[in-house]
Design a protein around this nucleic acid. Structure first.
Lengths: 222, 222
DNA sequence: CATCTCTTGCACCGATGGGTGCACTATCTT
DNA sequence: AAGATAGTGCACCCATCGGTGCAAGAGATG
C-alpha cells in the first residue's frame, strides 16, 4: 500500500537507526485498513474504531501515529493522488512519434479507459468528489494531478501533431478535452450514480474506447 | 418551490374541504428551507434543527409533516427529479424536422448546456451523487429520468436522422452519448471537484457548447 | 539484562444529532 | 362560540463518534 518511507540514503558504516519496526507495522496496517474503508464507505461513514478493528490495532495507536482522523485521511489520499499523477504522466508518452497515428490513438484510448475504469481508481475519484467540500485543497490537488496532467500531456501532443499536419486541432486544449470525454465520459458518469453496479467487461470497455477514438478521429483527423 | 397540491377539481357547491392551510404553509416553508440546506451542505451535514430554524417552524412540525429526515429528503429530491425529467423531455423536441440541422444542433447544444450549468441543477446532481450509496434508488431514478431521458430522446432523433441520411450515425445511442459528453463533459466534471468555484459566463458556455457540437458534426455529419 | 519506546485495553469525556413526549397556544372549520 | 386540528417550545432520551488518560504489557535496542 505504497509506504512512504522517505528514501533517505544512509552512508553505510554510519547506520542511523531505522524507524522502530513496530511503528512501521502499525502504520502499514492502519493505512491499508483505512484505505479500504474510506474507499468503500467514505470519510464520514468510516469510524476510527472501525479502522482500528480492521487493522487489528488499538484505537490509541491510530492517534499516536496519525494525529487525528483528518490527517490520516489527507495523508492517504495525497499518497494515492501522487501515484495517480505518475500514471498520468506516462500514459500519453510517445504519441507524437507514432508512425500510425490512428492506431496509436486507439491504443491510447484503450489504455486510458482500462486504467481509469478500475474499481480502486473509480472509488478514489468518487471519494474525492464526495469530500470536495470538506477537503477542497485535496480535491484541487487531485484534479490537477490526475485528469489535469493527462489533459496537459494530450494538449501538448495534439499541438505538436497539429503543427505537423497529422491532426486538425487548432484548439489543442479543447481537442484534448473532447478526446478524454469521448473515451471516458460515460464510464465515469455511470459509476458516480451507481457505485455498486458491476463494471463493464474489458471487451466492452475496449469497444467503448474504440468508438470514442473513432469519433475523435473523424472530427479531428487531417 | 413546486408545491404538489394534487390538481383535483372540485365541483362548485359541493366544496370538499381543502387541506388545512396551516399544514400547507408549514410544509412549504420546510420544503424550501430543506431544499436550500440540502443542496448547499448535503444530507448528512444538514441538521433537522437547522432546517427548522431556517424555515421558522418548530422541529416537531417537521416530524409531524414528513415523518423523518430520510422521508423529507427523498420526497424533495424526487420532486426535483420529476421536474428535471420534464425539462429533459422537451429539450430535444423538433430536432428531426429542422431544415438546417447543423444550426439546430448548435442551438440544442447551447440550450442543453445552459440548462445544465445552472447552480441548482449542478448542485442537485452533485447532491444525488453524494448520497448515491445511502439512497441508491434515488440515484437510479434521477439517472434514468434526467440524463437518461435526454439520451433516449437524442437516440431516437439520431436514429431518424440517420435513416434519412442527414446524419451518419449507425450507432445512434453511442452518438447520443458522444453528443452529450462533448457538450457537457467538462462543465459537469469540473463542478464535482470544485463546487465553490464560480461558473463560466454564458458566453464561455456558448463557446464550449459550440465547440462540442462542431466536433460532433465533424464526426457524425453526413 | 536494563532501559526506552511503542502498543494495548478500557473506561471515559463531550459534542452532535435524530427523534419523542407533553402541555400549551394558535388557527381552522362548522 | 366551540370543538377539532395543527403548530410551538422545551426538556429529554439515546446512540454515535472523535478524541483522551492511564496503567500495564510487549517488543526493540544497546
Amino acid at each position: 500500500m505504497s509506504e512512504q518511507q522517505p528514501p533517505v540514503h544512509i552512508p553505510a558504516g554510519l547506520r542511523d537507526r531505522g524507524p522502530d519496526p513496530r511503528t512501521v507495522r502499525t502504520r502499514a496496517a492502519v493505512a491499508e485498513a483505512a484505505t479500504t474503508l474510506f474507499l468503500r464507505n467514505g470519510y464520514a461513514d468510516t469510524g476510527v474504531d472501525e479502522i482500528a478493528a480492521l487493522a487489528k490495532v488499538s484505537k490509541r495507536s491510530i492517534y499516536n501515529n496519525y494525529g487525528d482522523k483528518e490527517s490520516l485521511f489527507t495523508e492517504l489520499v495525497l499518497g494515492f493522488t501522487t501515484t495517480a499523477g505518475e500514471f498520468a504522466e506516462q500514459l500519453v508518452g510517445g504519441l507524437t512519434e507514432a508512425a500510425d497515428l490512428p492506431q496509436a490513438l486507439h491504443a491510447l484510448g484503450r489504455r486510458h479507459l482500462a486504467t481509469v475504469a478500475r474499481p480502486e481508481v473509480l472509488r478514489l475519484r468518487r471519494l474525492i468528489i464526495l469530500e470536495a467540500t470538506r477537503f477542497p485543497a485535496l480535491a484541487d490537488e487531485y484534479y490537477r494531478r490526475a485528469p489535469g496532467r493527462v489533459m496537459a500531456a494530450l494538449t501538448e501532443a495534439f499541438t505538436s501533431l497539429h503543427a505537423r499536419g497529422a491532426l486538425r486541432a487548432p484548439n489543442a486544449r479543447r481537442a484534448a478535452e473532447h478526446f478524454s470525454y469521448l473515451v471516458l465520459g460515460s464510464t465515469l458518469d455511470a459509476f458516480l450514480f451507481a457505485p455498486e453496479a458491476q463494471l463493464l467487461s474489458p471487451d466492452e470497455l475496449d469497444r467503448l474506447a474504440d468508438d470514442g477514438v473513432s469519433a475523435f478521429l473523424a472530427a479531428y483527423g487531417s
